[in-house]
Amino acid sequence: MNPSNELSQPLSPAQTSLGLGVWKRFRKHPGAIFGLIVLTLLLALVVFAPLTAYDPEVSDISARNKPPSIQHLMGTDALGRDLFTRILYGGRISLTVGIMVVVIGLVIGVPVGALAGYYGGWLDALLMRITDTFLSLPAFLVLILLSAILREVELPLFERNSVLTIALVIGLLSWMTFARLIRAAFLTLRELDFIAATRALGGSDFRIIVKHILPNAIGPIIVEATLELGSAIIEESGLSFLGFGIQPPTPSWGNLLSNAQTHFTTQPWLAIFPGLMIFLAIISVNYIGDGLRDAFDPYKVLDQIGE
């Protein structure tokens, strides 16, 4: 990597476009491509769920607890409902909740962490104490409380067991990790020379934060986002034990899995398939995250330019 080399060779149009460069690096990551394919497939299956031959909520007493077969690809549950259909419909709920929780986490956590990390001082202290306060809340008790409140109070948009409410509740209790990670990344990055240079060139704080520091902090954000997606899917199923999550007979991956617990030895398919779906979703998002992190990595960008 010779600076004189860099200067002597004009940049190609592809290298000047950030998006194309990222894609170029991304597609060289086999895991990321695998993840992208699996996730796309999952999303397609979930979107086209109504095309299956069965209704996810209609029981068939004559077909209870049947193992996988041609008629029922993933077997049937204790009410004779087709598990494949329920998994597809469950995926709609679970993926929506997961994605919404991540979005809420990002929307709150990124600005809080960025402001705290960049400005430091009293603003940092204030924002971090707020974060600490949220971290110290016993999530379980808060959920019980919210569940009780929403039972009494009718809010127009937030029906008690709607996906929106559930995602909001989980999201509001899980943005703190984002904030802390971003803050840590900002604390390091703001001291680097290129930031000082940008500032010297008259770059505004907003520009520095959004254009220069944030892209460099993308790694931890993506890793946390993928982890959060998985845990939100699981947390949603925990909520239903409080009478607050997705209620039966509506399926979600989480409640399909938790209902299967007692039958693991006798009807293993009831646990294996929802578990497999959660596994595939999380692993594909993780791989995509991995690929994106590499693609955004400034050192890798320099490597590529240097090639």
């Binding site: 029981s59 009478g243 039966p248």
Partner: peptide
């Protein structure tokens, strides 16, 4: 299962039940 089955049966006679399971 009983709760879900009853809700489905009542659905057949035009009564819609929203299910809740609490501790």
């Amino acid at each position: 299962l009983t709760q879900q089955f009853i809700a489905e049966q009542l659905g057949k006679i035009g009564i819609k039940l929203n299910l809740t399971v609490v501790e």
